[in-house]
Every structure is written in C-alpha cells, then in structure tokens.
Design a protein around this nucleic acid. Sequence first.
DNA 1: TGTACATCAGTGAACGCGCGTTCACTGATGTAC
DNA 2: TGTACATCAGTGAACGCGCGTTCACTGATGTAC
Lengths: 194, 194
Amino acid sequence: MRYSAAHKAQNHEKILSVAARSFREHGGDTSGIGTVMKKAGLSKGGFYRHFKSKDDLFVAAVARALDETATGAVEAAQSAPEGQALRAVIERYLSVAHANSTGSGCVLAALAPELARKPLSVRKRVEALLDAYRGRLMPFVPGETREEKLAKFSVLFPSMAGVLTRARMISAPEERERLLTEARKFFIQAFVGQ
Amino acid sequence: MRYSAAHKAQNHEKILSVAARSFREHGGDTSGIGTVMKKAGLSKGGFYRHFKSKDDLFVAAVARALDETATGAVEAAQSAPEGQALRAVIERYLSVAHANSTGSGCVLAALAPELARKPLSVRKRVEALLDAYRGRLMPFVPGETREEKLAKFSVLFPSMAGVLTRARMISAPEERERLLTEARKFFIQAFVGQ
DNA sequence: TGTACATCAGTGAACGCGCGTTCACTGATGTAC
DNA sequence: TGTACATCAGTGAACGCGCGTTCACTGATGTAC
C-alpha cells in the first residue's frame, strides 16, 4: 500500500542514519543494503524508492556523518574558553571516547582509504562535502591568512585521523590511551602552542 | 599432477606478492582470492595448498608489504647525509610517488581502518608485525630515551599515513602535491627541527 | 464536498554474479626398501 | 640403483551464501474534476 509523504520522509531519515553508522562501523563494502534496510525496519526491496544506488546512499551517508561530526566539533570549540577552541577540538577528536565509538565518529578515520578508491564521480562529491566540513571548522584554526589556516587545517585533521585509526587497531586499552594522550600533547603543542 | 617443492615455493611467492599488491590497491575485502590466483597464473582451487584461509593470506601479505616498505625506508635513511636520516624518510613517505603508487606503499595508508575492524586474532598478529616494522625504523627517530623515540614514532607514522591517504582522495594532482608539500614541511620541522 | 482514478511506498520473490571454501581427480615427485 | 608406492600441487567443478538490483503486485494516499 502507499504511504504518506511524512511516513516516507521518516523512513528516508531512518535509512540514512542507520547507513551513516553502519558504513563507518563495518566499512562501506562490508555493510550491505539488506542489513541497513533491516536495521531501519524495512525490506531491502524498498531501498530504491529512496536512493538510486548504493553509491548514492554512500555519499548521502558520508554527508550526514560529516555534518554530525562537524556539529559536534563546532559545539566543543564554541563552549571552550577564549583562545582554547582548537585545543578543545583536538582533545575531543583524540579522546578515548572517539576512538571507541567507531560507528559515530570521523568519516576520514573510518573510511579514508576506501574513499580514495571510489570512482571519480563519488570522490568529487565527497571532496565537496569535505570542503564544507573544512569551512565550518576553519574559524577555529589559528593563522594570519586564509592560506595559512587552510594549510594548517589540511595537515592537522588528516594527521589526527591517521592517529585515531591507528589507535583503533590497538587491542590493549591502556596502550591505546597512551597513544592518544601522546598525540594530543603533540598536536596541541604544534598547533595551539602548548 | 604433483609439482616439485621448488615449483611450489615459487608459486607461493607469486601468490604472496600479487596479494600484497592487490590488497593494498583494492582493499582486502574488495580483492578476492579468485582474482589473486588468476593474476598469479593459477586456478583458485589451488589456493588452499598454500594458505589455510583468506585471513591467513591477508596477514602474510601485510607482513610482506610491511617488510618491503621498511626496507625502502631504511635504505633511504641510510643513504641520507649525517643527521638527515629521518628527514629523508619523511620526504620519501610523503612523496607524490608514494601517493600515486597505492599498490606498493604503506600498509597503514592503504588498510588501516580495515585492519582496525579485523577480528582480534588477526589484529594481534598485525600488531606484532607493526612492532617489528617500528623496530627497524626506530634507530632513525631522534630522542634521548627509548620512550621518547617510541612516542615520537607512534605519532609521526600514523599521522603521515593519515595525510597520505587524504592526499590519495584528492582528484586534482596539483592540489594533492600541495598537501604533501605542506605536510613534509610540517613534519620535518616538528620532528627533525628544520 | 464527493467521486474516480493515478501515483507510488513498501513487500517479497527473483535475477545474475562473485565470494570463500570444499572436493574428487590427475599424475609427476619424493620416499622407503 | 631400481622398483613400488604414497604424497600432494594444481585443476576444474561444485557448494551455499550474500550481494546489488529489478520487478510484479498491494492498496492507501494524493489529485483532478
């Protein structure tokens, strides 16, 4: 039977949020449409009323995930004391909590190599999304000029993503924590100035 | 028909080297045993005379890849002028050539999130391999104590891996190069001291 | 406002396909005497 | 050194399975008059 537009919008939302979590948690290639739809409470046949392909959902899920991550980072930055915004962002990013929540964290840390392997059409769309993400966080990066801020951002965030992913590979919690602590210290010193 | 031990060793080697490349190039989940065996010039049924499972091959391929990467880095370090070893390693790691050769480069940059999602048994084995890798490069990391070197290494290499992967996501070559140049400058300044 | 009808969200079954793994079979290699 | 036989590397077909996608069908929703 047909369902109302509101009902559809609600399901669309559900699929998207389940996918954003599932792709980050299990990888895009390893988490299937069937699983996502089931977790959203729907049968997999209905998927194509919402997205025209899996890649389409993938990009939408990345957009959703980046948006959530940016919102969290911006909130942390804004509620930090004067001049401590970036420090707060770094501490939040390299927290044990972030390392342990693989389904709701940074897209780069969860999917970067996979994204690098996607067809150009997908990569172009993801690049645009990352530009938007950068735009929201740039205000909190120190630097005289836009170029300087941009350069710092471009090195800082991928670096932190690399460390976070590496931390997730470590099985011993205390060792994982040690790496994160060390990295926080380093990035704060290098980008905030102790 | 049965083949000689030498013949088997040769094929084992071929499978391993094809897998080490293929896994890094296409991802472990996305590159199948059938493809690897075909590229090695064998039929896929013969795979299980060489490895007891795909995960087994995966770990062996990671070992092989790490070994090659370490050898390359050590060579670069050793042929650098006095006191410039780490600088040479960083420049090599963050080179355009490394960013463009996805099948033969750093394992972390190619597979880190995937590795973080592997079952504990696999992760433990990979951790041991990464420890060995670290052991080979530690001599070139500056620092008074072993602890200091270790801390520096643990932040530097995953950070560079994050940047390299991010660079691989960038479609425009000149933008990719710009990020790598910026990152080289940063890491050399931070870890070598200009 | 009420009626007739087109739309379309969601279901459930089916599609072809490639996956990792197993297995019967082959015949040259390696081993035991 | 020669003979008899077990081993086992590699083949090719088959296994069950889950994948992304398609499709006929349903009936309430939305629209046109």
